[in-house]
Amino acid sequence: MAAAALAGIGLRAGHVEELLERKPPIGWLEVHSENYFVAGGALHAQLERVRADYPLSLHGVGLSLGGSDPLDAAHVASLATLVQRCEPLFVSEHLAWGSHDGGHFNDLLPLPYTAEALAHMVNRVDALQESLGRTVLIENISSYLQFNCSSIPEWEFLAELAGRTGCGLLLDVNNVYVNAQNHGFDPLRFIEALPADAIREIHLAGHSTQHVAGQDLLVDTHDAPVCKAVWELFAATTRRFGARHTLVEWDASLPALDVLLGEADRARAIQATHHVVAV
């Protein structure tokens, strides 16, 4: 596939009408699955119009895949219905949990990286893929703490998960950078350790820096342009894996659509420069 088709943007409510009116030349779009867990109304109609012109991917944020409560059958059923209707390019979720004992935090909370958590995630990803009848992609998250009980590096955990379930990986390069800064590791080590075949999609986003107790803590706020260091890490990622479907996400303080399209152009240019076809 031509590199031009590989750069996309996360589509948010504030941009939908303008996008449908202008139909800018962008390779693909991604929406948050849960935003379309509705019975009917204008949202469905709108998504159909989007889908008529662009490949669409579904990105879940609320399944609590790593949670120890039973997998939410109603949530999976809503996702399955949406998948059936949208025939998405990819279906993705996170290496995270978000609820316990029925109470949801509606956030991506980190898992301990232990053999027990890995076995649990393998079961859950197997169950999700079985329910949807297709491969899903699992994304690495940003985290602001590490657990004492963790015994497996995050990159090994992801690689093992992909190896054991056959799931794809959605590599969020910003999240790798954020975690590398927050937890003190070399981000290239993370990238190098992942199985190239499993990488189906890449996310890019902006983060913010919070000053906590005299130290910087990076927080994955999706409210800013992609920073220089993340663009550089993206270039390294492209050299390692080749050009993959790459998405720019922006959720809070949503800028003009053109700003987001500009970020996608930049991703496309980096892919064109750094993608080395293996011989």
């Binding site: 703490l145 009980c149 003190g184």
Partner: peptide, 29 residues
């Protein structure tokens, strides 16, 4: 606190980031 790796920033401050995320997400929704 005993479950969280001590690394310069207190466990309470790290948890506060998540507590804030949870509350801000709910407030925005």
């Amino acid at each position: 606190g005993d479950a969280i790796l001590a690394a310069g920033i207190d466990a309470a401050d790290r948890l506060a980031v998540y507590r804030n995320n949870w509350q801000v997400n709910a407030t925005q929704a």
